[in-house]
């Protein structure tokens, strides 16, 4: 799609959507949102960009192979899940910092878990996307 309007719009949409996806990810614990939806949104952001500029260009922006996000995300999720084990609590128990952080709010193991999910979703979706367009 070589429409100029679409191209211009998607240049601005990409950072905005990415920011929005992080916002969705962070608010998940209290308001609608979460890692899964956030991840999907981020993937959509890249997908829109690739429609405007082609897959090669998007791959250039991302720089790293999105496949790497999957193991990193898994490490986050599994790490957050087994972290309580090391302080003697049962696995997957929620651990929280006492004081809320600025902008982010309460930070706990559930947040890291969600970040892991977020990364896995982005990684998986983009991997599927790139391998589909590479081959077809």
């Amino acid at each position: 799609m070589k429409s100029l309007i679409f191209k211009t719009a998607s240049t601005y949409l990409l950072p905005l959507l990415l920011l929005f996806s992080i916002f969705i990810l962070l608010r998940g614990h209290y308001l609608p949102g979460g890692g899964f939806v956030g991840g999907l949104m981020a993937a959509i952001a890249f997908l829109i960009h690739s429609f405007a500029f082609g897959m090669k260009e998007t791959q250039n922006i991302i720089k790293i192979n999105p496949g790497y996000l999957m193991p990193i995300g898994l490490v986050f999720a599994v790490g957050a899940a087994i972290a309580p084990y090391f302080i003697g609590a049962p696995i997957l128990k929620g651990l929280w910092f006492e004081e809320p952080f600025r902008f982010i709010g309460m930070v706990g193991s559930a947040l890291f878990f969600d970040i892991g999910v977020y990364m896995v979703v982005i990684g998986a979706t983009l991997t599927i996307m790139f391998s589909l367009t590479d081959t077809v």
Partner: peptide, 15 residues
């Protein structure tokens, strides 16, 4: 420590 029950189910109850 969360208010979004759906998300709590996902990350905590059914983690």
């Amino acid at each position: 420590k969360g208010r979004n029950v759906v998300n709590i189910i996902l990350v905590d109850y059914r983690g």
